[in-house]
Simulated scan of single mutants.
Amino acid sequence: MAKVAFIGLGVMGYPMAGHLAAAGHDVTVYNRTAAKAEAWTKEHGGAARPTPREAAEGADFVMTCVGNDDDLRSVCLGADGAFAGMKPGAILVDHTTVSARVTAELYAAAREAGFGYVDAPISGGQAGAENGALSVMCGGDAADFDAAAPVIDAYAKICRRLGDSGAGQMTKMCNQIAIAGLVQGLSEALHFAQKAGLDGEKVVEVISQGAAGSWQMQNRYKTMLADDFDHGFAVDWMRKDLGICLDTGDEIGASLPVTALVDQFYKDVQKLGGGRWDTSALIKRLTELG
């Protein structure tokens, strides 16, 4: 069992840290809103600290799961950042979806300071985090990954190293690119079924067993048909991720026409007031805007 610090107790991080505690690890947490960290310790034990530096002191592994590039820099760098508290040989595992640029920056800083850095973005949504069944895609030095993988296993269905530093973030971009097109396609199919006077649930019962089936279809069609989007991965965060995908696509010369289009569709959803709705709210754009 390891001494672990977990930084960022949002909808994903809170249950992930809980799985670490349940697996027997010695877990110390930090969250920007201290009340959430206090609630976590009441539920799971362990300890809470007022800064990332203090949470990271003495830890073998420091897990981060925050919002974006700036959030990640703020919890890693500076006098109160995790890097200032980490001991030589410790490993930081970042579960945030961020740019390859900030990953390269922090990897270099970590190596210079004498500890490891693994970029390990996640997929599987809130349910995956709560059930300990996340897909974890990793980049970094092989030895650091090999050391961290047994700890990550507490909340992973699958955990794989895809290559050197940044490969995990690049793989997460592939994940978001694939999801964008799938959700739009599902939204159009359900919208079409409704306009055609078909029973959407019966339609999905049939087509989900064939080539059209997907995780999005199985897990989101009922809430989409019910006009219920108060759950899951927020549109605002998806736009952040797709922006990273599109910027990186420009840098590496990858053509992403569907991703660019769906990103604009999500912008329409934001204009409808749906920035915090689940990403399946793309169907709402069709019903509201046509």
Rank of each mutant, 00 (worst) to 15 (best):
G78M: 03
A79L: 02
A79R: 11
A79Q: 03
A84R: 00
K87E: 15
P88Y: 00
P88L: 03
A90T: 08
L92P: 09
T96N: 04
T96Q: 08
A100T: 14
V102D: 06
V102T: 04
A104T: 02
A104L: 05
E112N: 01
A113N: 02
A113I: 00
G114N: 01
F115E: 02
V118I: 13
S123L: 07
A127K: 13
A127F: 07
E130L: 10
S135M: 11
M137K: 00
G139S: 02
G140M: 02
D141A: 11
A148S: 12
A149W: 08
V151G: 01
D153M: 02
K157I: 05
I158R: 11
I158V: 14
D164P: 06
S165D: 14
S165K: 09
Q169D: 06
Q169I: 04
T171D: 04
T171G: 10
N175I: 04
I177S: 07
I177L: 05
A178T: 15
I179S: 14
G181V: 11
V183Y: 12
V183M: 14
S187A: 14
S187Q: 07
A189D: 10
L190R: 04
A193Q: 02
A193V: 01
Q194I: 02
A196T: 09
L198E: 06
D199H: 13
D199V: 00
G200A: 10
E201Y: 11
